[in-house]
């Protein structure tokens, strides 16, 4: 227990992680560059092209309003990644900071923060997000707040637990006794050991956020049409499945790949 986290063992990245990173890079490229390179407006309707098949004037076809599917997919991917990144960031920063604080200060600071995290964990995350969404269904604000609020706990708990072990290490105790300032110790001794764990948690958090955002709009309490959101797109196109099955499947495949990439990246090699 005392020496596990002392020095991060340089580990060869596993093949699954590598595959996840590659897939993620591809999808992130599509999400970042797609909306810039594809000139079509994701909201422009062209009823003569309604449900146009892939390969014609529209590369991946057009939806029931004749909107370019490729453009909508690119914007949808950007929206999902954007929401996921922002909510993971908004969860990680306070989560890690409070985790470090609790490990450093201990005592009442830790107890109060533990209690706060227990309140959040008392309800399944989606219920909390739904409760917040009830205030303003279909808006970014409560969705984002709800995701950050449910996701920070994991960062807090893991950071606190690992930092508590780290801080009792001899070399760090020595550094504290020598009078190095806390921030210096955190930066030089704690942060390098915590970084891999926090990255893993962030990838999981982003996957969870992508799932939540698409799920909530699919059950019509999340972002509303005409926002090009992947879950929305799928539900909107579902009635036309018999005519254009590919159109329905594309957003689903994109969601699947995004979540898969993040989960592969975050995978521990055992489970």
């Amino acid at each position: 227990m005392t020496h596990i986290a002392a020095t991060p063992i340089p580990r060869r990245p596993s093949r699954t992680r590598l595959a996840g990173a590659l897939l993620l890079a591809l999808l992130a490229g599509f999400a970042l560059l797609g909306p810039v390179l594809i000139e079509a407006d994701p909201a422009r309707q062209d009823f003569s092209a309604s449900l146009a098949p892939a390969g014609g004037e529209y590369l991946l076809g057009a939806d029931h309003y004749g909107r370019s599917l490729l453009a909508r997919l690119a914007h949808g991917a950007r929206l999902s990644f954007g929401m996921a990144f922002l909510s993971a960031l908004a969860a990680a920063v306070p989560g890690v900071a409070l985790g470090l604080l609790a490990a450093w200060r201990g005592g009442w600071t830790r107890r109060v923060l533990d209690f706060l995290s227990m309140i959040v964990l008392a309800l399944p995350g989606l219920l909390l997000v739904l409760l917040l969404l009830a205030f303003a269904p279909g808006n970014f604000g409560p969705l984002f707040l709800g995701l950050a609020l449910t996701l920070w706990v994991e960062f807090y708990r893991v950071t606190r637990a690992s930092a508590a072990v780290l801080l009792s290490q001899p070399h760090i105790e020595a550094a504290r006794l020598l009078g190095f300032p806390p921030l210096y110790i955190l930066r030089k001794h704690v942060a390098p050991s915590l970084a891999p764990t926090v990255t893993t948690l962030a990838a999981f958090a982003m996957a969870a956020a992508i799932i939540a955002v698409s799920t909530l709009s699919a059950i019509s309490v999340g972002l509303q049409p005409p926002t090009p959101e992947l879950g929305n797109m799928m539900i909107e196109l579902l009635p036309y499945y018999s005519e254009a099955p590919l159109h329905v499947l594309l957003p689903a495949i994109l969601i699947f790949l995004m979540v898969l990439a993040l989960q592969l990246l975050a995978r521990r090699d055992t489970a």
């Binding site: 799928m234 689903a252 699947f256 989960q263």
Partner: peptide, 18 residues
């Protein structure tokens, strides 16, 4: 298992339905 975990429940539901 890895594949299934990357499918959100609503997608799995729609997939089975289809």
């Amino acid at each position: 298992s890895i594949g299934l975990r990357a499918v959100p429940p609503f997608l799995l539901a729609l997939g089975l339905m289809l």
